[in-house]
């Protein structure tokens, strides 16, 4: 089997290749159950103002930080300055250098502003952050981000929360061949087959939030994603057959009666 190496990002080894977001669950209890069912070892969180009337939200009361590594994001940031500010606050809140870096370019698509993303990646990497940038499915930008000091690249499969799956598997494949780096599909995964496809392409991991949290039964979908990621990885390692236009018999022709 090929590519048996482990998933290591920022010096941390992960057994599970599924990273899970903590947004949009109906309750904190449902979120905790979904994390458990997913088998994940890293969860994303957002950084927001504490509500002075209600006190700090207590999300971490539902997340065992010994079991799950916390990955703060810079979601909602539309400029380099904002992304840097949120990253630095996230580092202080979580006492970890990991940051899922988002610099968003447009409200309707939530596509990344790759120019800003590149600048922010370079600055944060120099400050000692382990930068995991959410980027386009663009192989050239993936290379630029790695050159700027990113710890991995996280191309989108489709727009955040869209559930459209891997819209351009060929670009993801080219990214995998272009950069000698960890590649994590982030955003767009809507159901188990999308996650499996990402892994069959050779991606190192998948990051899912809405695909799990928005499912009718989030906990069951979390389990489905866990199995899909494992199945996709195994299929990639096993090496699939090539596609052919015509049939090839599975049963021998020798020994037939006529």
């Amino acid at each position: 089997m090929k590519n048996r190496e482990k998933l290591i990002v920022g010096g941390v080894e992960f057994t599970s290749r599924l990273w899970v977001g903590t947004g949009k669950y109906r309750t904190n209890e449902e979120m905790a159950a979904a994390l458990e069912a997913s088998g994940t070892e890293m969860v994303t969180v957002a950084v927001r103002r504490v509500d002075l009337k209600r006190g700090s939200g207590g999300l971490l009361d539902y997340i065992d930080t010994k079991r799950y590594r916390i990955l703060p994001n810079t979601a909602g940031c539309y400029s380099v300055e904002d992304a840097l500010r949120y990253a630095r606050l996230g580092r202080e809140a979580g006492l970890s250098d990991f940051i899922k870096l988002e610099v968003i370019g447009d409200e309707r698509t939530l596509f990344p502003d790759v120019m800003g993303l590149l600048t922010a990646t370079e600055i944060l990497a120099k400050e000692g952050f382990i930068v995991l940038p959410y980027t386009n499915d663009d192989p050239i930008m993936a290379k630029r981000l790695m050159d700027a000091g990113a710890a991995c690249v996280m191309p989108l499969g489709a727009p955040i929360g869209s559930g459209l799956g891997i819209r351009n598997p060929y670009n993801i494949k080219i990214i995998l061949e272009t950069v000698d780096a960890t590649v994590v599909v982030d955003a767009g995964v809507g159901t188990a087959s999308d996650a499996a496809l990402a892994m069959e392409l050779g991606c190192d991991a998948v990051l899912i939030n809405t695909g799990i949290a928005g499912a009718e039964d989030a906990v069951s979908m979390a389990a489905a994603m866990k199995h899909a990621v494992m199945a996709g990885r195994l299929a990639y390692q096993a090496g699939r057959i090539s596609k052919k236009l015509y049939a090839t018999a599975s049963s021998p022709l020798e020994g037939m009666l006529l």
Partner: peptide
């Protein structure tokens, strides 16, 4: 002064 903490996010 800004005081922030973690909330659910993706």
């Amino acid at each position: 002064v800004e005081i922030v903490s973690f909330v659910g996010g993706g």
